[in-house]
């Protein structure tokens, strides 16, 4: 199987995000950059597919040379090679990224193309579908279980209140949800091997961004906690509030 996994470099989930002075971007200094966690599920699934069916995993990421640091992290998991689509910065319009990825993916003739279901930084949740549109391929999103057999696949998707099992012809596009697998640790050998693996750099014509960030703002500060009473007497009121106000039970 010829597998492609599209990945994005995102800030660490625990990074303290600061908005820059002009208000439309974040301050990159001091941020620890990681492989988008949902993309790690996609990489792991790609590795499992090639371990079972043979073939190679190619990582594809769009951005400036600095994203090669996280591409290496994907290679350290065991992916065979990578392509970086050169761009001065990661576009904020998913359509631009999607079109560029589709152009490069088209050349690779992949049997299956994996994405994380969304990037944890901008949360657009669009790329897999956009690429599917451009390549005219079936797209299965929010996948928690995947089986491939010959030229068809079966996937279990998360849907509201349950699961849905779908089948589809290959080639196809899959977006990975938490639960699809448990990504492996990067072994020391894998990390050492990663630095020798090729990262090809490709240039495509990036179109103009139609979606422009006007303003970034912080979420409202969290309201302070409330003590509803003490001891067993407080329990009915606590239960009522959790049910009616917080709506968590």
């Amino acid at each position: 199987m010829n597998v492609a996994v599209c990945m994005k470099q995102t800030p660490d989930t625990e990074a303290q995000i600061k908005i820059s002075d002009e208000g439309t971007s974040i301050v990159p200094e001091g941020i620890k950059w990681i492989v988008n966690p949902y993309d790690e599920f996609a990489i792991e699934e790609g590795l499992r597919i090639t371990e079972k069916h043979g073939g190679e995993v190619t990582l594809i990421s769009l951005g400036p040379p600095s994203v090669e640091k996280t591409i290496r992290e994907g290679l350290a998991m065991g992916a065979h090679k990578a392509i970086r689509i050169d761009a001065p910065a990661v576009p904020s319009d998913p359509m631009v990224t999607g079109r560029a990825l589709a152009e490069v993916l088209q050349e690779g003739h992949y049997d299956i193309i994996l994405f994380g279901k969304q990037a944890i930084d901008d949360d657009h949740t669009q790329i897999a579908s956009i690429v599917g549109g451009f390549l005219n391929l079936p797209v299965v999103t929010v996948v928690v279980e995947l089986h491939l057999d010959g030229n068809r696949g079966t996937a279990v998707r998360e849907v509201e209140g349950g699961h849905e099992t779908v089948s589809f012809p290959l080639p196809a596009i899959i977006s990975a949800q938490r639960g699809l697998n448990e990504p492996r640790y990067r072994s020391l050998k894998g990390i050492m091997a990663a630095k020798k693996k090729p990262i090809a750099v490709k240039t495509v014509n990036l179109e103009k961004e139609h979606l422009v960030i006007e303003k970034l703002s912080y979420p409202p500060p969290k309201k302070p906690g409330r003590i509803v009473g003490e001891g067993p007497k407080a329990v009915p009121e606590l239960v009522r509030l959790l049910h009616e106000e917080a709506k968590v039970i």
Partner: peptide, 10 residues
């Protein structure tokens, strides 16, 4: 190096 930090992280 990035590699040293990656090993530590893993």
């Amino acid at each position: 190096s990035d590699e040293e930090k990656m090993i530590r992280q893993s």
